[in-house]
Structures are given as C-alpha cells and as structure tokens.
C-alpha cells in the first residue's frame, strides 16, 4: 500500500505528471476574479471565501482524470485489480495520493491567494482549516467520478457533469465555514458538518468506486 502511494506520488511530481497545474489554475482564477467584479476592496473581501473555495474545487476537478486514466491506458490498473491488495484499498490510496499532490498544495496556497482578494484577517485561519478538512472529500468524491468515466471517450466533460453535483454539500459547508470565519461568526456547526461529510465520504465512497472500477475492467 505504501509502495503504491510512493509510486503515485513520484509519478505525479515527475515532469509531465501535471503536478502544479492545479495550483497554477487556482492562481489564475483568483487573479481573474478582480478583473471580472472590479477591484473594490470591500466587494472582494465579501466574496473572497466563496471564490477561493470555488477556485480550489475547480482546480481539484481539473486534475481528477489523472487518478485512473493513465493507469487504465497502460494496463497497470488491471494488474492492481488482480493484486492481493483489495481494490477498495487501491482506490483509497490513489485518492490519498491525489489529495497529497493537489489538495494539500491548494490548501497551502489558499491563504496566500487570500491576500490578493483582501480576505479579512480572521478569515485566513478558518479558510485554511475548512479547506484542510474539506479537500479530502473533494478527492474521494472525485475519485468516484473518475472511476465512473475511466475508459470512456470524451470522459472529461461527462466527469464534470457527474462530479459537480456531488460536490454541492461539501462546497456549501466549506464555503459557509470560511465565510462565517471571515465575518467573525461562530464556525463550529459548518465545520463539524464538513468534517462529517469528509469522514463519511472517506469511509464509504471507496467501496462504490471499487465496484465501479470492477465493472469498467470487466
């Protein structure tokens, strides 16, 4: 299991693995927002938590097809499926690797980008924390969507259509926690609910993803 995690991480970081593309996308989206809505500090500050959450979510979405597509094409997914490691474990590890290479950098970058959008002072910590809690859910849900569309032609657009509705609860609670934090309100409830979604998705969705992969590999 650890070997698989290392392999996925190395593949992602190596040139052509697409590591950093998500980060660059996140940066560009954040830079484009003031051009779209105007540079007034007050307006930017009020939408900053939501924009940063949405940007992180989209950056995550962009890198999802990497989770299974390459392994499916070169056949290593078939090998993994016949390996002694249960497929559920493979899916969980691959989602974890995706989170390490995409989710964590986004979480780390979000406060820096918050400066660009003049995020209010108390918001930084809560934005960081809500993303830290929420991005694992994005990776696991995304792995499910990637498993559904693996091996399909034009799977990318379809995957967005399938994954984005599934992201709704995570986005609502995450952005709500970040917004309340930025406005100095109590954030416990949305943070707890966000944690609940992450934990639930982490515990249950690998089974669904593995079932889906078995069908696709049949």
């Amino acid at each position: 299991m650890r070997a698989l995690l290392w392999r996925d991480l190395r593949l992602a970081v190596r040139a052509g693995g697409g590591f950093g593309l998500g980060l660059a996308f996140f940066l560009i989206v954040t830079v484009l927002v003031p051009f779209a809505v105007g540079p007034q500090t007050g307006r930017l500050a009020s939408i900053a938590p939501g924009i940063l959450w949405l940007g992180a979510l989209l950056a995550c979405l962009l890198s999802l097809d990497r989770i299974f597509a390459l392994d499916f094409e070169d056949g290593s997914l078939d090998l993994l499926a016949t390996a002694p490691l249960p497929l559920e474990g493979v899916v969980a590890v691959k989602a974890l690797a995706h989170w390490f290479t995409t989710g964590l950098p986004l979480v780390a970058a979000a406060p820096a980008l918050g400066v660009l959008l003049s995020l209010p002072g108390p918001g930084f910590f809560w934005l960081f924390l809500s993303l830290l809690i929420g991005t694992p859910a994005l990776s696991v849900i995304g792995a499910f969507g990637a498993a559904l569309t693996v091996g399909l032609k034009r799977g990318g657009l379809l995957m967005s259509l399938l994954v984005l509705p599934l992201y709704v609860p995570t986005l609502i609670f995450g952005a709500e926690a970040a917004r309340r934090g930025a406005e100095g309100l109590a954030v416990e409830t949305p943070l707890m609910l966000l944690g609940g979604i992450s934990a639930g998705a982490l515990a249950l969705l690998p089974f669904a993803s593995a079932a889906v992969l078995r069908v696709s590999l049949r």
């Binding site: 509705p165 709704v168 609860p169 609502i172 709500e176 949305p190 609910l193 979604i197």
Partner: peptide
Amino acid sequence: LLSRYAVNFW
C-alpha cells in the same frame, strides 16, 4: 439528500 439538508442550512 445531503444537498437537501445542506441547502436548508445555507
């Protein structure tokens, strides 16, 4: 179902 309750909360 989750969205239904999330949206209620929101």
